[in-house]
């Protein structure tokens, strides 16, 4: 059996987004991939009424030795995956630190206040600048646009999971993703999911050189 190792133990991962973007599903997928490798996983999720257009966060604690609190203490995230760019800032403000890294889907989902015109939504340039200021490294991609090319914006969460794998931060392998996806979906659906995973993986891998 391989010896399990992590850059930090526990490794604190936050997957954030807006209700309906599928981040709960994404976090469970990543959690299951790591759990099967032998890691102890704790996932804390906020859903329920708050998912109706509200911000939804999954806190994942990945460890070689047991379960941790389902809420990461403030300022202690190691990696943030954001399905929405303003949510990336919100999470960085609470859980970020100079060493945190972030993968950000740049497609905005306007809150009701913005649609109504009561508050304005920052420009993507501003959001990227702030994300970089608050992190050691950040990756940006329009995962929603890529997902729509695959036929449905919902695949953005799988693209982002692929991107997370592509950073090499966690032992997330394509074949592990493939195994889980094949168990859960028909072969046709599994294929699209795998395509989505590869898109995210390659985007980050290219940038990493």
């Amino acid at each position: 059996m391989n010896t399990l190792s992590l850059q930090h133990d526990p490794f604190n991962l936050i997957i954030t987004g807006v209700g309906g973007q599928g981040n709960v599903l994404g976090s469970r997928l990543v959690g299951n991939m790591l759990s099967r490798k032998g890691f102890s996983i704790t996932i804390g999720e906020t859903f329920g009424a708050s998912q109706r257009g509200g911000a939804v966060m999954s806190h994942m604690r990945i460890s070689t030795h047991g379960n941790f609190s389902p809420q990461i203490p403030k300022g202690r995230a190691h990696m943030i995956v954001a399905l929405e760019p303003v949510e990336a800032i919100r999470v960085l403000v609470d859980y970020g630190n100079p060493g945190v890294r972030a993968i950000v889907n740049t497609r905005p989902l306007h809150p009701a206040g913005v649609i109504a015109g009561n508050v304005s939504y920052p420009s993507i340039d501003e959001l990227q600048k702030w994300t970089c200021e608050l992190s050691a490294h950040a990756w940006f991609m329009d995962a929603t646009f890529e997902a729509m090319k695959l036929g449905n914006p919902i695949f953005a969460n799988i693209i982002m999971a692929g991107a997370l794998a592509g950073t090499g931060t966690l032992p997330l392998q394509r074949k592990d993703f493939q195994t889980i996806i094949n168990e859960q979906f028909s072969s046709e659906k599994a294929d699209v999911n795998l395509k989505a995973f590869d898109i995210g993986y390659k985007r980050v891998e290219q940038e990493m050189g």
């Binding site: 509200g54 800032i89 809150p111 913005v114 702030w130 608050l134």
Partner: peptide, 11 residues
């Protein structure tokens, strides 16, 4: 930065 108007997200 959070005061620089990252808009809230009410349900």
């Amino acid at each position: 930065l959070s005061f620089m108007k990252t808009p809230g997200r009410e349900p």
